[in-house]
């Protein structure tokens, strides 16, 4: 489902990834671990084109990214098949919880509003927040916000889900409810890449673990082998 080949990337003129290769089969979960600044978030952002590749290539969900700037159209099509969940949730504060989840298919796929809202309601049930559909995101706890963000990504029915430290901004109690949702997705066979510092979670969810240090993959294997 994902093939990363010899990828290099720079951020603000500094080399943050060098010769990274990675393979993620369909239906499996890969976690990226490593110290802060090791490049794991950058690698994740390379997978949906939020970062530009300096060298190498990425194939993901049938789309291909090569070195250098990519056309906006190519990136849009890719991102419709690749969902991403951010550390800071980034929910849209001017919309209700339900509209946050209904907006992407309505705008991007021109789905009729009623259908988009019905689908959003189903997704909110799936993350256990159907009762909060009509409130503003700012009224929710961090854990609840992150679950809405996951539902929002799922609304586009992505073939791959990317998680960028989804629980780092949460206290342990709230992390738990988010991790449960991610585990549920894993059990349902969703292909996922998760950047995390939480090794116990990595052990529970990961088919494969890749450890990055200073922009290179230093170890790769099952959770038992790497952690």
């Amino acid at each position: 489902m994902i093939t990363v080949e010899s990828v290099a990337a720079f951020r603000a003129g500094v080399r943050v990834l060098e010769d990274v290769s990675l393979n993620v089969p369909a239906g499996t979960v890969t976690t990226l671990v490593g110290p802060s600044g090791s490049g794991k978030s950058t690698l994740l952002r390379c997978l949906n084109g939020l970062e530009t590749l300096a060298a190498g290539s990425v194939e993901i969900a049938g789309h291909r990214l090569t070195a250098g700037p990519q056309s906006p159209r190519r990136l849009e099509l890719l991102r419709r098949d690749v969902g991403m969940v951010f550390q800071q949730f980034n929910l849209f504060p001017h919309l209700s919880v339900l509209d946050n989840v209904a907006l992407p298919p309505r705008v991007i796929r021109q789905m009729p509003a009623a259908e988009a809202r019905a689908q959003a309601q189903t997704l909110l049930e799936r993350v256990g927040l159907a009762h909060l559909a009509d409130v503003r995101p700012t009224a929710l706890s961090g854990g609840q916000q992150q679950r809405v963000a996951i539902a929002r990504s799922l609304a586009m029915e992505p073939r791959v889900m990317l998680f960028d430290e989804p629980t780092s901004a949460l206290d342990p109690a709230m992390s738990g409810e988010v991790l449960e949702v991610i585990l549920g997705l894993a059990r349902a066979g969703q292909t996922m890449v998760v950047v995390t510092h939480d090794h116990s979670f990595a052990r529970r969810v990961a088919t494969q673990v890749a450890e990055l240090v200073a922009g290179r993959v230093v170890r790769q294997g099952t959770a038992a082998e790497v952690l």
Binding site: L78, N90, P104, I108
Partner: peptide, 13 residues
């Protein structure tokens, strides 16, 4: 992050 989140969903600019 708002702009990035919208782009990551596949919206055009």
């Amino acid at each position: 992050g708002q702009f990035e989140a919208a782009l990551a969903l596949g919206m055009t600019k």
